[in-house]
Each structure stands twice: as C-alpha cells, then as structure tokens.
C-alpha cells in the first residue's frame, strides 16, 4: 500500500521558509533602496547636464551640485521639462521622451536651445535593445551625431539617415530596426514639442 503523503507539514514548512526568505529580501531591499535611488538620480543628472553640454567633466564628484546650480525642473501642461541656465544665461530646454524600440520601451532625453532652432544633444535613459547591436545607441559616436542639428516645425523628418539628401544621422549597421525606431521616436517628439510646447515656454 502506498504511503500516505503528509499534507500539513509540507504546507507549514513552505509557508515558514517563504516568510523567512521574503523578509530577508525585504530587509536587503530596504537597505539598498536609498543607494539605488541615489545612483539612478545621479545617472539621470549626469545625462541631463551632458545633453546640454554644460557638464564640468573635470570634476565628476559634484554632479549633484552642478545640477542644482544649472538645471531647473518644471512642468507645463503636465509635461515636465528641464530648463538649463549657466552663468545667468538661458541655455535651453530638455524633455524626457518615450517611444517603442525594437524590444521594448526607449526613454530618451532631448535638449533644445532657447530658441528651439537646434538640438543641443540627446541621450538615452533606458532601453532594452540587443546588447552589442541595438544597444549601441548608448555609444558616444551615435549620440554625438544629434548635436547641433537644425530643426523645423513644418518638417516631418528633421532627422534622416545617410545617405539620403539632407540627411544627418548614420544608422547603426546590424541594428536597422532599432536605429529606425530611435529616429521615428525623435522625429515625432520634435514636431510635438515644437508645435505644442514651444509657444507656451517662450511666452512664459
């Protein structure tokens, strides 16, 4: 006759061991939470300063200080933006934009000059593109290409891949879809920002 499996003991055992491990994880998580928060904030602040090109890279220990000095976080029509002022001079505005990439959501930063005539720079805050291929959108050479590109409100493709006429961006070979997703995302958001947000900001 097969031996009857005990029910109560295994269930109790599982409950107890789950409680033990969950509490350990909760404690570890609680201890690390502040540090993770600081790290991700620091990363975002560095990137914002970098897109405005006003980062003092000789001193990376006072990013927080530099940021508080130069950047104002504000909102307009429920859209938050970053206003950069350096030495009393208005540098420009930056926005966090989102869109879909090849595998998942891409969150990016885009900064304009105070007149909304050129892009000062872009950067990516988070994405889940293929490491080594689409993931290379993080690389400096790709991001740098967006610096100082003129933008126009009535143009749908402010950013265009080489070698088309009037083109300005090299796509990443081996990552055609990611490159395309990134360009589409920026083109859409540029039009949106120029036509819907720009007026409100400048009349402020």
């Amino acid at each position: 006759m097969p031996r009857q499996k005990r029910i109560l003991y295994p269930v109790l055992f599982m409950i107890i061991i789950t409680i033990v491990f969950t509490s350990v994880l909760a404690i570890v998580n609680e201890l690390a939470k502040d540090r993770i928060e600081i790290q991700s904030k620091l990363k975002q602040q560095t990137k914002i300063l970098k897109t405005f090109n006003i980062i003092d890279s000789s001193n990376t220990t006072n990013i927080n200080e530099q940021y508080n000095q130069k950047i104002n976080e504000k909102t307009i029509d429920n859209i938050s933006y970053f206003k950069a002022v350096d030495d009393g001079k208005l540098i420009g505005y930056a926005f966090i934009v989102e869109g879909s990439g090849l595998w998942g959501k891409i969150t990016a930063l885009i900064a304009f000059d105070s007149e909304f005539k050129t892009i000062l720079g872009v950067d990516f805050l988070s994405h889940s593109e293929t490491p080594g291929l689409g993931g290379r959108i993080d690389e400096e050479w790709f991001i740098e290409q967006f610096d100082n590109i003129l933008v126009f409100e009535n143009r749908a493709d402010n950013l265009l891949f080489k070698p088309a006429i009037g083109s300005n961006i090299d796509s990443i070979s081996g990552a055609t879809l990611t490159s395309k997703a990134v360009i589409d995302l920026f083109n859409q958001q540029i039009i949106f920002i120029l036509s819907d947000i720009k007026g409100g900001l400048q009349s402020e």
Partner: peptide, 18 residues
C-alpha cells in the same frame, strides 16, 4: 532559495555597480 539569492545579487549590482 535560488531566487532569493539571485535577487540579492541583482540588488547588490544595482546599488554598487549600476
């Protein structure tokens, strides 16, 4: 047990080696 340790590794990397 395995998941618990993996989450610890994940948290550690996020906090110290972002």
């Amino acid at each position: 047990i395995i998941s618990a340790y993996v989450i610890i590794v994940d948290i550690f990397l996020k906090a110290y080696y972002p």
